[in-house]
Nucleic acid binder design. Sequence first.
DNA 1: TAGCGAACTCGAACGGCGTACGAGAGTCGT
DNA 2: ACGACTCTCGTACGCCGTTCGAGTTCGCTA
Lengths: 243, 243
Amino acid sequence: MPSDADPIASSIWVRPPKRRTGQPTLTREQIVRASVELLDTEGLDGFSMRRLGAKLGAGATSLYWHVTNKEGLLELAVDEVMGEIQILDPDEVGWRAALRGYAEGLRAMILRHGWITALFGVTPNLGPQSMRLTERATDMLGKIGFSGMELAYASSVLSSHAIGSAVVETAWRRTSERSGMSVVELMDEMRPYIDQIADDHPKLSEWYRDNPITDMGQLYADSFDFGLERILDGLEQWVESGK
Amino acid sequence: MPSDADPIASSIWVRPPKRRTGQPTLTREQIVRASVELLDTEGLDGFSMRRLGAKLGAGATSLYWHVTNKEGLLELAVDEVMGEIQILDPDEVGWRAALRGYAEGLRAMILRHGWITALFGVTPNLGPQSMRLTERATDMLGKIGFSGMELAYASSVLSSHAIGSAVVETAWRRTSERSGMSVVELMDEMRPYIDQIADDHPKLSEWYRDNPITDMGQLYADSFDFGLERILDGLEQWVESGK
DNA sequence: TAGCGAACTCGAACGGCGTACGAGAGTCGT
DNA sequence: ACGACTCTCGTACGCCGTTCGAGTTCGCTA
């Protein structure tokens, strides 16, 4: 340990250039960003306070100064990725494209950050980014002509469709990634299991025979689009017929 | 430890009447049922192999003879509650009521077993009960007139709506239960936070002012119904206009 | 310039977790 | 009587979230 008077050791040049202990080397924003990265690469199971601390070059317990809880930190991470969703202006792109963009943006965000599927049902999203998103969605839906409770209902049916679709798709993606197989290979893998129960499930086997699945990603995209178009049709019909 | 020849200790009357160790006192069905009960009462966080073992009067590690994993056991629990969903016959109740019943049954099941929201995105549902449900849904949708990929799409939009709606509602219910407050009380609790950000969210504050929420459960039920009706309208329109 | 209090980091420790392992008990067919 | 099979369980390992209190650095006031 050099004396304070030591002209060399006390010189800025010799001191470790950044990283002075006892100083705000950690910030909440930094922690949240690193959390999202760790969650994206390691998944929710691979996310721990110790690992996050290591990734940040800090002790795990140092995080607790900036964040109350692991649970609270996950809330912050959820809100962070909620901020990725954009809202389009219906005056520019038309009402249908604006509504479609909202649902598609939410779906794409969930597929980017699959870990969020396990957190949607845990805590309501009330962070600043979620509120900002709700504000803009409210504005958009108001411009289109929705008001009152039906404005909330319309927003809800779009987000529900996006969440429900993406959650189910994420389950397939996860098992595919974990096994290192494509989804089609996975289906082949379980062929014996499917054949075994085929007798008790005639309609299902018939459907699978007539509709062999070759590209799961495309299937989910088409399925999402079909549902979204039906929802938009239904909303349009409701608006036109009397409100 | 009594000798085998001991006439008293080896008598059936003296032996502990049931509960002979080394015998199949545990079954997989029993374990799965107890898991669902434990999950219902304690939630996913309160569910552990040790607690489950204690509930069953068995050692935690005994469970691993009947079940590969905690994760595998949770898959079984998910499949178990999937079996609660009924499918109606469209020839009896009409196509619209049959489709509505499917979505409502799924939604009600999720609200009964809120822990499932964190598991939907983890593993695809391929258990026997899920397959049976899919078989019956396929049959129902076929009777109504759907076929090919659009049969899957129609099923998907209904289940997505149910899952998405129920997941979001579950988040509110959970925080309400944990805090012991009703959702309306919760909203009052966060009033200062909402007021604080009101200036940056004019459309949102305006909407909240004009549409005060008094009953969250009713709101979610109405929201679900509205979305479901729009989806059914959209499906009907698609069927009628050219298929 | 000294010293105080706030801001921040971190090592040690506690109780709980999932589960691998191997020893053991009971049962059955031979 | 004896293996082989089925099933239970105590022990143990490594990881987890989190509490606590000690330690370091800084800005401010006296």
